[in-house]
């Protein structure tokens, strides 16, 4: 396994994903690493964050003493609304998502398969908390980036031939950014685009159970 010092941490993954956020994008961020992406988006571009509980133009956490119980994000954290923000009901919120008006969806996953299937909501036999808005997001969004660790705590690959856990959506993930690599999901399998600094192609191959396509020289991520 790769030495820890070469792998990206959660902030590193978020920083790399922030590069995928383009000028003029409406973006939905899931809970966990995806939430951190907002911290690294360039400030010379115009981006609005959507939270599916009913806000576009979500801002940072409020200053102490300014928290409002009527203003939270999908993770139930207190937030602020930026100038130009709007509020709406849950049907309109998922209308934005289902109608493909949201340009980019970033979410976490337990497993991704080489055909783009994603599993991130249920581990049979363990407490099931529910899918929230994840199934709606992955069923409709055209541009879905998964932010996750390449392997689970036991060291097993999370990039699989076929998901073992109950699916959240089928053939929907477009890109994966892990602590080891940036990978595109193609019809032929996982295509390696970039390596984390100091991580070798061999190490990525070893940590990837699904079919990994390696074409030519694989550059290191620029962070």
């Amino acid at each position: 396994m790769t030495k820890d010092k070469f792998m990206l941490d959660k902030d590193g993954i978020a920083k790399r994903i922030a590069e995928e956020v383009k000028d003029g994008y409406y973006v939905n961020l899931g809970i966990g690493i995806p939430t951190l992406v907002a911290n690294f988006v360039r400030n010379d571009i115009e981006v609005e964050f959507q939270s599916e509980n009913g806000i576009l133009g979500m801002g940072p956490f409020p200053f102490e003493g300014e928290e409002d119980a009527d203003l939270i994000n999908a993770g139930k954290q207190t937030i602020t609304a930026l100038p130009g923000a709007s509020f709406f009901d849950s049907a309109m919120s998922f209308g934005m998502i289902r109608g493909q008006h949201v340009d980019l969806t970033i979410l976490g996953a337990m497993e991704v398969a080489e055909n783009g299937d994603i599993a991130n909501w249920k581990i049979p036999g363990k407490m099931v908390k529910g899918m929230g808005g994840a199934m709606d997001l992955v069923a409709s969004a055209e541009n879905i980036i998964v932010a996750m660790m390449h392997t689970n705590k036991a060291g097993d690959s999370k990039l699989l031939k076929k998901c073992s856990l109950p699916l959240t959506g089928v053939a929907c993930v477009t890109k994966i950014v892990t602590n080891l690599a940036v990978i595109e999901v193609t019809k032929d399998g996982f295509k390696l685009l970039e390596r984390a600094p100091g991580v070798s192609v061999e190490e990525i191959k070893k940590a990837t159970e699904g079919k990994l396509l390696v074409e030519g020289n694989i550059p290191e991520m620029k962070l």
Partner: peptide, 21 residues
Amino acid sequence: MLSEELDVELIPQGTLAARCQ
């Protein structure tokens, strides 16, 4: 839920909204 005293139907959030609407 685990002791099966409670029946739980989990559905996607957008579907929940749409079924209300």
